[in-house]
Design a binder for these strands. Structure first.
Lengths: 178, 178
DNA sequence: GTATATTATATCAGTGTGATATATTGTACT
DNA sequence: AGTACAATATATCACACTGATATAATATAC
C-alpha cells in the first residue's frame, strides 16, 4: 500500500461536529488543524465523492438562488468508521522541516547563510506564538463544554513546541556565532 | 506545480559529503535526518537516475565479484545547484502528527481512549530522547571540525522539541484527568 | 456601476510513500 | 560443511496528496 489515506478521517471528523461543504472543511483545516495538519482541495473533493459513494456521508444540494453548494452530513456508518479509526493506534507522526535540512547541509554555504535561515524560522515562530497563546487562553476559560478540552490539548501542544523552538533558536545562533 | 521536489537536494547534500550508493543514502536519511526528514527507495533511485541524466551526479559501477553496485558522485554543476538551493529561502516546514489529529477529534471516543494515545506518544518520545542526547553530547565534544556544528544544530533541535513534547504530555494528561 | 474579494467545486501533473520483487553477500548456528 | 537468516543493493508500482489552475456565482467596497 502507499501512504495510508487519512483525508477520509479528517473529513469524517469535521462532519461529526456538524454538516458542512468541502470549502468549509478546507477553511477549518487551515484554521484549527493548521499547526499539525494540512489538506488541499485536490484531496478534499475527490474524497467527499468516495465517502458519499461508500455511504459514509450524505450529500444535500443547497442552492439558494442558482449557485451549486453541496452540504455533506455524516451517516451512522460514517460515525462508526471514525470511531474505529480513533481507537486504533497511531500509524505515523511526521516532521518535515526544510529549515533543518538546510541547516544540516549548511557547511556548503557557511555560517551567515545558515544564520539567516534560523532568523527567518525564529521570526515566523515569534509571529505565530501569540495567536496560539490567545487560542489557549480562550479555550481554557470554557469549563462546562467537554469538547473544548480536546481542542485545548492540540493548542497547548502548539504553544509548548513553539516555546521549545524559540529556546533552540537562541542555542543555535550561539553555536554559529564566532 | 505540485509539491516542490526536494529529494534532489537531499541526495546532492549527502553526495557533497562523499560518493555513495542509493542504499547508503537511504541509510543516512534514516539515521541522521530521521528526526525531521524521510525518504524512500521509490524516490531515491528514480531521482538518482534523473540527476545522472542532468549531469548533476556521475555514476560508477563498482562490482567486486559479480554484484551490481552503483556509486554516485556529485559534479561541480551538482554542487552549485545544491548551493543555490541552500541560499534560497525555505519554502515549507511541515508537521503532520496523526496523534494530534486523533486528540482533536477525541470527543467521539472519550477520555480513556484519548489518554492512551498520549501515553503511547510519551513512551515513544521517552525512548528516543536519550539517543538524541547522546548524539548531542558526542557532537558537542568535537571542537575542531567545522562541519560537526551543522549536525549539532539539528540534533539540538530534536532534544529541545522532545523536551517540549514531554512537558506537554504532563499538561495533556492533567487536562483529561477527572 | 463595476472592480475586487469571497464562496464554491473540479481537475491534473508532479512528487513521494510503502510495499513488493529480485538477487547477492555476510554471519551465526549446528 | 551446510543452511538459515540478516544485510546489502537496485528497481518498480499503485495509491495519496500537493499546489496550481479553471470556472463561476455572490457579496462587498468604492
Amino acid at each position: 500500500m502507499a501512504n495510508e489515506k487519512r483525508m477520509d478521517q479528517v473529513i469524517l471528523g469535521f462532519l461529526s461536529h456538524e454538516p458542512m461543504t468541502g470549502y468549509e472543511i478546507k477553511k477549518r483545516i487551515d484554521t484549527t488543524l493548521h499547526y499539525f495538519w494540512s489538506g488541499s482541495y485536490g484531496s478534499i473533493y475527490p474524497t467527499l465523492n468516495e465517502l458519499e459513494k461508500g455511504g459514509l456521508v450524505t450529500q444535500e444540494t443547497a442552492g439558494e438562488g442558482g449557485r451549486k453548494k453541496l452540504i455533506y452530513s455524516i451517516t451512522d456508518e460514517g460515525r462508526s468508521k471514525l470511531k474505529e479509526w480513533l481507537k486504533n493506534p497511531v500509524v505515523k507522526d511526521e516532521l518535515r522541516y526544510e529549515t533543518l535540512l538546510k541547516l544540516f547541509f549548511g557547511k556548503e554555504i557557511g555560517k551567515e547563510g545558515t544564520l539567516q535561515h534560523i532568523r527567518n524560522f525564529e521570526d515566523h515562530i515569534r509571529t505565530e506564538l501569540p495567536y496560539l497563546e490567545m487560542c489557549v487562553a480562550r479555550l481554557a476559560e470554557i469549563q462546562d463544554e467537554e469538547d473544548h478540552k480536546y481542542y485545548l490539548l492540540t493548542a497547548k501542544f502548539g504553544v509548548e513546541t513553539y516555546k521549545g523552538y524559540l529556546k533552540w533558536c537562541e542555542e543555535a545562533k550561539q553555536i554559529l556565532s564566532p
